[in-house]
Design a protein around this nucleic acid. Sequence first.
DNA 1: TCTGGGGTCCTAGGACCC
DNA 2: TCTGGGGTCCTAGGACCC
Length: 414
Amino acid sequence: MFALADCNNFYASCHRLFEPQYNGVPVVVLSNNDGCVIARSDEAKTCGIKMGAPFFKIKDEIAKHNIAVFSSHYTLYGDISARVMTNLARFTPDVEVYSIDECFLGLKGYDCLQNYGKEMRDTVIQHTGIPISVGIAPTKVLAKVANKTSKKHNGVMVLETEEQISKALVDYPVEDLWGVGRQFSHKLIKEGIETAAQFRALPMAWVQAHMTIVGLRMWRELWGESCIPLKTMLDPKKGMCTSRAFGKLTTDYAELKEATSSYAARLGVKLRREGLCASVISVRLLTNKFGSAALEAFPSITMPLEHPVNNTLDLVKVALLGLQKIYLRGYMFQKVEVTATGLIPEAEVQLNIFSEYKGLKHDRVSQVLDQLNLHYGAGTLRLAGEGGQQKWKMKRQFLKPCYTTNWNDIIKVR
DNA sequence: TCTGGGGTCCTAGGACCC
DNA sequence: TCTGGGGTCCTAGGACCC
């Protein structure tokens, strides 16, 4: 048996922890740049605010329903998430942290599952203040179904017998299944398949032919055959990317240089944190995808490196070289992406027989950079090329303090 | 004015190997 | 007339996830 524990309206719940005046009132959280809605409290859902709605288009509704608005704050969510996961890990040794707000738990051999689920829920809310829902079933796909269903039943739902399972699938919308996205749901609904039960009744061959082996796995899981194992160990990452829209569009090469340097530096921090080196770096510029097609451009370049590296100085240098090669005058760019692939553990980097590695000094500079920024806060020490003003920096109009990760922001109790 | 960021897996097709 | 069989690796594109 698998459990799926999932935090209810996670980002909204995180903000409510520190500003309880927002309990019981509608709350939304915006994406980076305050672009669109990425989390809603139940009350905001009731007001009709849609997931993904662009903020600038719904400002009137926000005002009308007096909805509280927050900029996204991943430092906060990451910290709260870790606390939730630590609590969940007390319930079984088999834990897969699936996303920032979801966790699969292996419950093979456990009984009294309904009570156990309730205990998880009670513990997490008592220890962290975050409400969760728990779905328990013989496979991960069914645990997802159980989890979603639980939201209408006190937050815990066990689907164990065939009777319970088929009952849950009868009116479960096919597009809500884990593994059915926009394309497949269109296709299925066109075939007259609207519920999970109807999908499960399809012939195996049809599913394999139209939805590949991925769809077939999901189909088998709906029949109770576990095909997607619990992943308790993290696979090594295959690629890593820093990509962020600017606070404003720009044609200015100097600004793009600053942003590219800054994103490459950020990529370096992430690589070093995971102990990885990049052997290939790609840079891509993008114009606004919602703009006119005539003004659209997304030039990119992929550059193999002579030596795999993760030091900031070398990464920035390569990224800027790439930018120089792809820059197009006159286009209003909205975003730059810097991507590392061919990731190799630091300890396994091979030297190049034809050229000496000259980055040792740069590696040491990066270590010092990381230590200082860890101590004094991210961004305290950075390259001059990342810019002082950073006019392209993302918009975060409704940003709240780092209550749990910065001493200066610690909450005051009178 | 204004529309997120960061990933994974699978398939098909082409280049290449012996 | 008539041109094998069995692989690997890479890339692009398309689907999905939160």
